[in-house]
């Protein structure tokens, strides 16, 4: 028997059409105490998703950090996220790289794989094909370093799984616009 459908929220304007997109936002901020907490708190407080988050200082003298956030939501929600970020006082600039197009995204991952015999050979062959580097090796294990687009890292990890994947550490996405102009 069919269960009765939950009544749609009377406040909702997007009844029945949920169109989730994934966007990469590049956020230039003053590197001051608490700035990351402000950004992360904004996402949790307003119920936005964070799929990936990367933050590091990018200009020491100017105290600037770049936060790269991969988020998902409806196009309206993504637009709102950008405006909400711009409201935070220590934020210089918010760029939606997905909306802008023409951007490069990279992620670095360390992948630990354990195995013997044929599995070791296969792991090395695949690593070679993906241009992953061996950065640690023992008789029964490798740690690979792989840099690339998220999909490539995902794919490599999936290939390592049956071979003897032990663990993964990923940096999250760093991104930048193409061409001569700054992001």
């Amino acid at each position: 028997m069919n269960a009765p459908a939950a009544p749609p929220s009377p406040y909702s304007s997007a009844l029945g059409k949920v169109n989730l997109e994934s966007h990469t936002l590049s956020v230039l901020v003053d590197n001051e105490p608490g700035v990351l907490a402000r950004v992360v708190g904004l996402f949790s407080g307003r119920g936005y998703n964070i799929e990936s988050l990367t933050v590091a200082e990018v200009a020491h003298a100017e105290h600037l950090s770049r936060i790269t956030i991969v988020t998902s939501g409806t196009p309206e929600a993504i637009e709102q996220i950008g405006h909400q970020l711009e409201r935070l006082v220590p934020i210089h600039k918010v760029t939606d790289l997905t909306l802008r197009g023409q951007s490069i995204e990279r992620e670095l991952a360390m992948i630990k794989v354990a195995g013997k015999g044929y599995d070791r050979d296969e792991a090395l062959r695949l690593a070679d094909a993906f241009r992953a580097r061996v950065i640690d090796a023992s008789i029964e294990s490798f740690v690979f370093e792989l840099t690339g687009a998220v999909a490539k890292v995902d794919q490599f990890i999936e290939l390592m799984r049956p071979i003897g994947l032990v663990e993964v550490s990923r940096t999250g996405v760093a991104a930048m616009s193409r061409g001569k102009d700054p992001t």
Binding site: Y11, S12, L15, E76, E79, Q80, H83, E86
Partner: peptide, 29 residues
């Protein structure tokens, strides 16, 4: 103000003047 959003002023064009860009398109297109 809006009550039920999907039935809010269905036939109108909307102009919104606000100093906060996040207010525009937040709840209503």
């Amino acid at each position: 103000i809006t009550g039920r959003l999907d039935a809010f002023s269905p036939g109108s064009k909307k102009i919104h003047i606000d100093i906060d860009p996040s207010s525009i398109n937040k709840n209503v297109k």
